[in-house]
């Protein structure tokens, strides 16, 4: 089985990019691949716990939490999160925070990289 590294830089609400990334990660995990998701810039919003579900917006906290429990690695850029007022205590359970070199190392070790830039 292979390893997929997904870098996400788009925002949680207002863009469907993270929805795509999560669905892709889910499909890859179902096929038995290792998946790392890196959240940077506005993408760090996905790492915040306590997202409230509304009918008009897609909601990713539950699928992401399930994926993490199932072995997905999700890491947010610490500086990007802190700059947005998201602190360690705000992190989704199982999600980690690291610096950018972690993402580059994840890409280095990956068989495939899908880097989804910001808006």
């Amino acid at each position: 089985m292979g390893k997929l590294s997904i870098g996400c830089f788009s925002s949680l609400i207002g863009s469907m990019t993270l929805d795509f990334a999560v669905k892709l990660a889910e499909a890859a995990r179902k096929k038995g691949h290792d998946v790392d998701i890196w959240l940077s810039g506005n993408g760090t919003m996905l790492s915040k716990k306590g997202q409230r579900k509304f009918q008009d917006y897609s909601s990713l906290e539950k699928p992401v939490t399930d994926l993490i429990k199932g072995g997905l690695t999700m890491v947010a850029c610490e500086a990007c999160a802190e700059a947005r007022g998201q602190h360690k205590e705000d992190l989704l359970e199982g999600c980690d925070r690291k610096s950018m070199d972690w993402y580059l190392a994840s890409c280095f070790k990956a068989d495939r990289v899908i880097h989804i830039g910001g808006e």
Binding site: F9, D101, L104, A105, K109
Partner: peptide
């Protein structure tokens, strides 16, 4: 975007610690 591209590229200088 461009700022993040530059900071990610510069972060390659310290990637060795993870490899």
């Amino acid at each position: 975007s461009s700022r993040l591209a530059l900071t990610h590229a510069i972060a390659s200088q310290t990637v060795d610690i993870h490899l």
